[in-house]
Design a binder for these strands. Structure first.
Lengths: 355, 355
DNA sequence: TTGAAAGCGCTAACAC
DNA sequence: GTGTTAGCGCTTTCAA
């Protein structure tokens, strides 16, 4: 290997500036115990040599890596993408790198928890959208660094999440206020790592119904993977073939709502005239489709979790059990409307459905 | 700070196993010059102490960081998410960490190129979807590590990208074959970091038209940010108010196609009966919407770029100027069909449009 | 305000 | 096969 020109070291800078490496170190870290004159000499030498401090060497001494480890189930979701897109620059501004561990399946997950590659190689770990077992959580406890959980409430550990339950309640109330009484809940199947939110949203839906004096009906709860058209069709078929079919569907995710709308319209069931559809997330998709939805802000989550993590790294006496819960709000758009025939609800005599 | 229990070091493991640190090092790196008996003793000691090698210390000696730096404009796109979701596990399998630099705007970009934080802190750099200036590219050249460009052809440097031009050509031919003669091209405005692909797709579109003996008409080329409904409506209005409006729109991205379809249907222009729409990407979105599109595989890109990078790190005599070009293919779905009135193309007397 | 010296935890020669 | 030794490039006492 034609030895790629060695990076200059502090010694090189020191020599060039006519000072010791200690002084170079002090200068570059902005310590004020350096005379202005020496400082500028050192800075110039560093610039001329295109010098950059080796984090490796520095962290060997300081015990700090300057790295934030981030554990995610996938990067192919609006939520993850948005969160990390706001987290990244925030960390950068704090002089930290962002080390992403993508753990898409059980095999990777097992390997991750076995080796804990982040150990000793990060100052804190952010766990996004995983539903960890008690055992896994405990394993992370003695990682020797702060661990913050995102989109997941873990007792006794710091976490950041949106108030999914309240959001789902508000969503359901929105539909109730429009006059709907038969409201279905559609949950996502197969989305990795979001089951905590999913459960909370179902709870919020149930709670809103109960508050309105409507007993939750399990027949109205269906599930499907949004990307699988056939499953979505089946779910829709299941709902429409009920004796008392719903007049509205609350989907726990915008993607699923989009998929439902696609299937409904294909089946000649107008949205929102004959069926209201409400999503959750407020992804860009929601605006394209004019989809009513519950907005949450993953970029706020990214910011909050980043700030909390930096605090925990810097002063270990920050409240370790802090939970940050972020709000949601309903955005009514074009896919929710009052139900048809609000006055005369007859049993089981809707028009034949074409599914 | 209540000194968080120190991580055990190799010395601790060595002591516990009754060997030297060199032996521990050799064992843990899987070098075969260790007797099976000693090996198991060391492994057990390491396990008991919950020991993990410090990359920092190791890399100080080896000169290798075990880190892959990845520069991206954003993480909130299907393309980036999918690419990195396949790249991540691949790197993990090779024992490398993935260090992501999110550089969303000019300020961050300037800062990145000024400090080059990846310098000395990674073994290779993957530059995703940026349209770098010559100056920036040169700055990366003397970063002292392999730099691979993704979704961007840079002369003389290794890169991986899909054949956007060929894809756009095929797409346009698909529409031509259906009988369309007035085909619009809609490009995305404001998407950070994809202008290389964008230009290539426009070229492919033009080329296909030319090949079919149809002179490209600049009036048929419009642009809009997919998430801005108003701009998309304007773009549609512009096309529909032409003397000879198009019968098909080729959108350079699925999101934009989705947005166009939303606007068209709202305007009571049936898709595909009165207007065909073709996208590019084949995101999950495309299937939900039954959108005809040109498929590319970002996860293949992630894999290819990962493998190339690992090769370049390991043997510097791998062809440094290698370009990997990946294929695309048209997926006809429900949003493309033959144009209306194929037989009698009259000028400027379509039905009044309701925009 | 600056420099000298002692490591941080590991790997790589080299000797045994 | 295994241990000894000498650093890798920094930061951090401690003296000056």
């Amino acid at each position: 290997m034609p030895p790629a020109q060695r990076h200059p070291t502090m010694a090189d800078v020191a020599e060039r500036a006519g000072v010791s490496t200690s002084t170079v170190s002090r200068t570059l870290r902005g310590l004020s115990t350096v005379s202005p004159e020496v400082r500028s000499r050192v800075e110039q030498a560093a610039r001329e040599l295109n010098f950059a401090v080796s984090r490796q060497a520095a962290s060997l001494v300081t015990g700090r890596t300057g790295v934030m480890a981030v554990l995610v189930p996938t990067l192919t979701s609006w939520f993850m993408g948005s969160s990390l897109s706001s987290l990244g620059p925030l960390l950068r501004a704090a002089g930290m790198e962002m080390n992403v561990y993508v753990v898409p399946d059980m095999a990777e997950r097992t390997a991750f928890f076995e080796h804990l590659p982040a150990r000793r190689n990060a100052d804190a770990l952010l766990v996004f959208c995983f539903d960890l077992t008690e055992e896994e959580t405990e394993r992370l406890d003695d990682l020797g660094m702060p661990v913050i959980y995102v989109s997941q409430h873990v007792d006794g550990r710091p976490s950041v999440y949106v108030d999914d339950m309240a959001g789902a309640r508000k969503a359901t109330h929105h539909l109730l206020n429009l006059g709907h009484r038969r409201i279905a809940f559609a949950h996502t199947v197969g989305a990795r790592g979001f089951s905590f939110s999913s459960q909370e949203r179902l709870l919020g839906y149930r709670q809103a119904l109960t508050e309105a004096g409507i007993p939750p009906d399990d027949d109205l709860v269906v599930g499907a993977p949004p990307q699988d058209r056939r499953s979505v069709m089946e779910a829709v078929g299941q709902l429409l073939s009920l004796q008392k079919p719903p007049t509205a569907i609350f989907a726990e995710q915008d993607e699923l709502a989009a998929s439902l709308i696609g299937v409904l319209r294909k089946t000649r069931i107008e949205v929102p005239e004959r069926m209201s559809v409400l999503g959750f997330d407020d992804q860009p998709l929601a605006e394209w489709l004019d989809l009513s939805t519950v907005a949450q802000s993953p970029s706020d989550i990214g910011r909050e979790v980043g700030e909390l993590a930096l605090k925990l790294i810097n002063d270990s006496d920050t409240d370790h059990k802090r939970h940050i819960v972020l709000p949601t709000h309903v955005i009514p758009r074009g896919t929710t409307a009052p139900p048809p025939n609000t006055q005369d609800e007859r049993e089981g005599c809707g028009e034949p459905t074409h599914i």
